[in-house]
Simulated scan of single mutants.
Amino acid sequence: MNLYRGCTHGCIYCDSRSSIYQINHKFEDIEVKENALELLKKSLKNKRQKVMIGTGSMADPYMPLEKRIEYTRKALKLIYKYGHGFTCITKSDLILRDLDLIKKINEKTKAVVQMTLTTADEDLCKVLEPHVCTTKRRVEVLKELNENDIPTVVWLCPILPFINDSEDNINGIIDYCIEANVKGILCFGIGMTLREGNREYYYKKLDENFPELKNKYITHFKNNYHVASPYNGKLMKIFYKRTCDAGIMNNPDEIFTYLNEFPAKNTTKQSTLF
């Protein structure tokens, strides 16, 4: 489900700015689906098979606007009421506001929180993702979720060529993930994507924060959609070795299967009584 369109986090690399998504208004002016909760209620109520409900792939469900209108919280109440599972992708510590509901869902069925981490450098994080809590705070959120038995998955992406594609950064993020006891890390290679809409915005931000780097991108990557770091091979070897050594899932297919899989019936803690 996507309750919102657009975002106010200001991440300089955001693919959701791409023209293909046809957001025909200023990206920071959030479009709200006013009947989304009614549609969700109808869908969940009539669905015979219980499933995982996901959100956050297009817009963070925990933007500042959520503090006021509580669409995500209200959706969580419906998901809990009708016995479905929940997972979301976020960068925001606002998710802790709903920890009570997430715990209830996880006790009844299954809840998984996915958190994006792109840089271990706090100052760089404030440039790349200026209007949301920094990496260190997100790691604190991951640790609190772990303490409350909520499984977590980290999106280690995008990694921006010539900016944060370094061994120190990859190792730093993996160190954070080990500290927080995350279940899996999604990494689709060291790089990013650029296409019409988000490319123009990204290049504008490069000019503002990294002078001359735009020309380097144009020379190396031209108009390619997939923009791979020249250090991809070396850094992915580090990623796979360290995650394997730590016992963290690192295969995207395996992780997505886990995220989408609704728990089988009669596997609750009550079964220990027999």
Rank of each mutant, 00 (worst) to 15 (best):
M1Y: 14
N2D: 15
N2F: 05
T8I: 10
H9V: 03
C11P: 10
C11W: 11
D15G: 01
D15C: 07
S16H: 01
R17L: 08
R17P: 09
S19H: 03
I20G: 06
I20K: 15
N24T: 14
F27H: 14
F27K: 08
E34A: 04
L37E: 03
E38Q: 07
L39I: 10
K41T: 06
K42T: 12
S43R: 12
L44T: 05
N46V: 04
K47R: 13
M52T: 13
G54H: 13
T55N: 07
G56D: 06
G56K: 01
M63Q: 15
Y71C: 04
R73M: 00
L76N: 08
L76C: 13
K77N: 11
K81F: 01
G83Q: 09
D100E: 09
K103V: 14
K104I: 05
N106M: 07
E107C: 01
E107I: 04
K110C: 04
K110G: 02
A111K: 05
Q114F: 00
M115C: 07
C125L: 02
C125A: 15
V127M: 08
L128E: 04
P130S: 03
T135D: 04
D149Q: 10
V153T: 02
V154M: 06
L156F: 15
C157D: 15
P158C: 02
P161S: 08
P161Y: 03
F162S: 10
I163H: 02
N164Y: 05
D168T: 11
Y176E: 02
C177S: 03
E179F: 03
E179T: 02
V182I: 06
V182N: 07
C187W: 00
F188V: 01
G189H: 08
G191I: 10
L194F: 03
R195D: 12
G197C: 08
N198S: 09
Y201P: 07
K205G: 10
L206T: 11
E208S: 10
P211E: 02
E212N: 14
K214E: 09
K216H: 13
N224H: 07
Y225P: 00
P230C: 06
Y240D: 09
K241H: 13
R242D: 07
T243Y: 13
C244L: 13
A246W: 00
N251C: 15
D253W: 09
D253V: 14
P263H: 13
T267E: 08
Q270D: 15
T272C: 06
